[in-house]
Design a protein around this nucleic acid. Structure first.
Length: 270
DNA sequence: CACCAGGACGTTT
DNA sequence: AAACGTCATGGT
């Protein structure tokens, strides 16, 4: 158990921003997260966060995962002050981060996300982990389940996925798992690619179109210029930016602002 | 019972 | 190349 003082960091917003489906609230200001095969618990008291790991594990894994080296305030301050909407959105999302999540998990999670709502996406992802993921024990002896590998999913039969209630997405995931397992699409090559090359490569996968590819680029490969446009963002763009969103002004990090906007659309009223 | 949810895909205009 | 129907599932 370690404590760190981290300014401009809000676990509640990160948990509810719809980018990670394996982080869940445990109680007042407490959260649990499974990533990279490990289980982490966190508790936030103002700017001080407790993490259930050693300092060595924190600097080796979680600093990077939570993107602590990026200066978000700098991007927030660069927002056009005459832009009423964006100014309100970044204010609302104060403490947001773009996580650096695992590529395979994000690919599958966002295939599941299509025509689906966030609570049910969480259920589907958790179900996949419980059914097919490796079982481990956390620091207090409780069981948790790692996200299943592409190899494991590729070896299953399509009918095996029925228990996860994935609907028509099961076939997408199965086909995608086989493409990754047999090397048709290489995860390690994707990691080294530029944004647009990675996006094109990702769209070779079954069930991955432009929107899901952009999400994978943003939430796993950390191409923060990726700007996924879903139904909420599309509605937002037509109502607040009928003349077009100023992508040129925010070139290189527009995706971060997209995430503020997405959170604002979902939780702005709370 | 109708409608919707962080879309993708094959087919028809 | 743009519009259209379809694809399952669970929630409201």
């Amino acid at each position: 158990m370690i404590k760190r003082k981290i300014p401009a960091f809000d676990l509640h917003k990160i948990c509810n921003s719809g980018q990670c489906f394996r982080m869940k609230p445990l109680g007042e200001n407490r959260y649990g997260l499974t990533a990279f095969g490990e289980y982490l618990e966190m508790e936030q008291e103002g700017e001080v966060i407790s993490f259930s790991c050693t300092g060595e594990e924190f600097s080796r894994r979680w600093e990077d995962y939570f993107d602590l080296y990026t200066d978000y305030e700098k991007m927030v301050h660069a927002v056009d002050q005459e832009d009423i909407y964006l100014t309100a959105a970044v204010r609302c999302g104060q403490g947001m981060r773009i996580l650096r999540q695992e590529l395979w998990e994000v690919i599958v999670s966002f295939i599941i996300s299509q025509q689906n709502n966030i609570p049910r996406i969480r259920k589907c992802v958790e179900s996949l982990c419980i059914q097919f993921g490796e079982e481990k024990e956390d620091f207090r002896g409780e069981k948790y389940y790692v996200f299943p590998t592409a190899d494991v999913l590729a070896r299953k039969n399509l009918e095996d996925f029925a228990i996860c209630s994935l609907g028509y997405r099961a076939k997408y995931i199965w086909n995608t798992a086989k493409m990754v397992a047999d090397g048709t699409v290489s995860l390690s090559k994707l990691t080294g690619m530029e944004y647009e090359a990675a996006r094109t490569e990702l769209m070779k996968l079954s069930g991955v179109g432009i929107k899901v590819a952009e999400c994978i680029c943003l939430f796993a490969l950390h191409h923060v210029d990726a700007f996924p446009i879903d139904t909420h963002i599309r509605d937002m763009l037509t109502s607040h930016y009928p003349e077009g969103f100023p992508f040129e002004r925010y070139q290189g990090y527009a995706g971060v602002l997209q995430q503020y906007a997405f959170y604002y659309e979902l939780c702005g009223a709370e």
